[in-house]
Amino acid sequence: MNSFTEQDLLIGARAYDLNILGMIYDRYSPGIYRYAMRLLGDECLAEDCVAETFSRFLKVIRSGLGPKDHLQAYLYRIAHNWITDRYRRQPPTPITLDDSMHADKNTLPELQTETIMEQKEVLLALRSLTADQRQVVILRFIEGWGNEEVAAALEKPVGAIKALQHRALETLRICLVKGKKDDIDGIK
């Protein structure tokens, strides 16, 4: 499976080769799901995002358009746009604590709660960024992509990606690090 390059996969996809399309799904859907989960924090929404991403990909191929290279970046861009539209359409779903929720046997509830709160805090901070800045941060520091790959996904030059990254990190630092420090100082 790994012997297929992105170009090979794209050629197969344009020919509606179901094996190749299956390979594409297997290779890229986990990453897109993870990406969606990190931004949306909801399994159902993340599944919807994956399904919609691949459906749009098929439609684009059908219309004769679509990417000529950087298939992975292209799919992430579709997912990113879907998530951004979702943000615009409706506010973030409030996280509620259900009585029926059961604690993970392997982790203490207080630790789990702390993790959830930290995740929520980071997600809120990410939402304060612009869509492009958010995508750069996620892809660069969470997914671990290189500048060139991110540039391909956003269809921007590498220099622009670096500028976006710089501004995004500055904003996050203010929200997550400096703000917290000020809070602590205030308590003291």
Partner: peptide, 10 residues
């Protein structure tokens, strides 16, 4: 510090 914060999403 920021990297640590972001790592909760990893």
């Amino acid at each position: 510090g920021l990297r640590k914060k972001l790592s909760v999403l990893q």
